[in-house]
């Protein structure tokens, strides 16, 4: 696999004031790599209330076609707030690795 190039390759490429002119580029930075625990969802216990979606500080939880909620592991930092708030106990935090 080709090694990803570092940006900027030269300091001259830095935009004045590090301004970012490309909208949505933050999505390319996968903060999920920071995680030490990941949330595991039990659809048998999930009542589709969406409390996890409301409390997720990353906004990385979305609802699927069947109405169940799921964290996008590219961005989930594993904080565990969803598991803490989920009163039916449908979310468990498990160690990564």
């Amino acid at each position: 696999m080709e090694k990803a190039k570092k940006w900027p390759e030269k300091w001259q490429e830095v935009n004045p004031g590090c301004m970012v002119f490309r909208p949505g580029s933050t999505r390319e930075y996968h903060t999920g790599t920071w995680r030490s625990q990941r949330p595991v969802y039990d659809t048998g216990k999930c009542i589709k209330c969406g409390v996890c979606y409301i409390f997720c500080p990353e906004g990385c939880i979305t609802q699927d076609a069947d109405g169940y909620f799921m964290a996008d592991l590219d961005y989930c930092k594993g904080c565990g707030i969803c598991a803490h708030e989920c009163w039916p106990g449908a979310i468990t935090m498990v160690e990564e690795g």
Binding site: K6, W7, P8, K10, W11, Q12, E13, V14, P16, C18
Partner: peptide, 10 residues
């Protein structure tokens, strides 16, 4: 850290 040196230089 990957950009900070370059930003400081700029």
């Amino acid at each position: 850290p990957d950009i900070f040196n370059e930003a400081a230089m700029a």
